[in-house]
């Protein structure tokens, strides 16, 4: 499994630090999206692991673990699609 991940970034200090062209390393994240959120989804014990939330999350922040699903809160925007799509109402939105 691989995905873009957070990496340190230092602003260019001198001219030679600037990239030479417009191409750059793929999957290079420097900021989080967690600040966009008013509510955070919580996966409760009712979860039957049907993976609907995993499939329909526009940000792909719900990921499979050994014992079910977990959420990457660094990049969750709190849209609540997972809560709506869940057939067992196993996801609750909690005010931040």
């Amino acid at each position: 499994m691989s995905k873009p991940y957070l990496r340190p970034y230092q602003k260019p200090q001198k001219l030679s630090d600037y990239p030479l062209g417009t191409a750059s390393e793929a999957g290079y994240l420097v900021t989080k999206n967690s600040g966009w959120r008013n509510e955070r989804p919580i996966i409760t014990d009712e979860c039957i692991n049907c993976l609907q939330c995993y499939l329909y999350c526009p940000d792909g922040v719900i990921f499979k673990t050994e014992d079910g699903l977990d959420i990457d809160y660094d990049f969750c925007k709190g849209c609540g699609i997972c809560e709506k799509i869940c057939p067992k109402q196993a996801i609750k939105m909690e005010v931040e």
Binding site: M1, S2, G27, L29, W36, L51, G60, K64, K77, C79
Partner: peptide, 18 residues
């Protein structure tokens, strides 16, 4: 959903919520 790759190729993007 079970067999699709766990890898994400479009992640951390700045699209609006939802």
């Amino acid at each position: 959903a079970k067999t699709i790759t766990d890898s994400e190729f479009f992640y951390g993007h700045k699209a609006c919520a939802g």
